[in-house]
Computed example of a mutant assay.
Amino acid sequence: MSAKECNENKSQASDETSTDTTSELAEMRVAQNQVKVTYRASTRGFFEVIEIEGDSISFTNDYNLKEINTFAIPAEEKEEFNRLLSELDISELSELEPPSKTHQYDAAPAAFLKVTKGDEIFMTPSFDHGKPPKAINDIIEKILSIKSMFEKH
């Protein structure tokens, strides 16, 4: 085999590997874009819904869901959010125990986290807004942090 043939074979093998990696990354992006994460907290005097889907965040305090603000999430924030989401075992969300239950008698807004992936929905039991179960604390903080970037002060 000549050196030229060897280089052509290496180049072809490299192109195949590159194509495989590119398609895997594309599939991961498509999978992440099909995921919708919803955080909702409410009580008699308080209502908040925050949704992250694709590269955007939407939020409202309007009970009627008519005034919804939507913004593009900066790439570095989206990357960090996706990292936190990938570390979360969403199949176990329904089994999480809230650290406190003051939301059961209106002493705190009741909150939950819902992850919709395709046709599947994974949801936590309700917990106190501001005191999520430890397993989801970081992702809740990230959601609230991204929202605060776009709130009018």
Rank of each mutant, 00 (worst) to 15 (best):
K10Y: 08
S91L: 06
P109A: 15
K152I: 15
S145W: 11
E53W: 02
F59L: 06
L65G: 02
N61I: 00
A108K: 15
F59D: 07
E53C: 10
K10C: 02
C6H: 07
E27F: 09
V49M: 04
E97N: 03
S56H: 14
D119F: 03
S94L: 08
D15Q: 12
S11Y: 04
V30W: 01
A111H: 02
S42Q: 11
F122A: 06
P74V: 10
E27V: 01
E24K: 12
F150G: 09
V35M: 03
E24L: 13
T116D: 12
L93G: 12
D128K: 02
F127Y: 12
Q34F: 12
D119K: 10
E27R: 13
E97V: 15
P74T: 11
E97H: 03
I68T: 15
T70V: 08
S145C: 10
T124Y: 01
D106H: 14
S100H: 08
E67I: 14
D128C: 08
E97K: 11
K101E: 14
E53L: 08
D20T: 13
V37L: 08
F122D: 03
E67D: 14
D138Y: 06
K78R: 14
D138N: 13
K134Y: 01
F46H: 14
R29I: 04
A135S: 06
Y63D: 10
T38V: 12
T60Q: 00
E5H: 00
A72R: 10
E80F: 08
S18Y: 04
G54D: 01
D62C: 06
P133Q: 13
F59S: 04
E95M: 11
K36G: 03
P109T: 02
S100N: 13
G45M: 05
A75L: 13
L88T: 03
T38M: 11
T19F: 11
D15S: 11
I143A: 04
S148C: 04
K4T: 03
I140Y: 05
M149W: 07
D20A: 15
I136W: 00
K66H: 07
A110I: 00
K147N: 12
P99S: 10
V37C: 05
D89N: 15
S91V: 02
S2Y: 03
S56A: 10
N137Y: 08
F127M: 05
N7Q: 07
F150E: 10
E51K: 06
L96D: 02
I68Y: 03
G45F: 14
A26E: 10
Y39D: 00
A107M: 15
L25D: 03
F46V: 07
F112V: 05
E8K: 12
P98A: 13
H103A: 04
M28F: 05
F127Q: 07
N64G: 09
K147E: 09
T43K: 13
H129R: 03
V49T: 03
E141P: 00
K134Q: 07
E51D: 03
N9A: 14
H153V: 12
E151F: 01
Q34L: 13
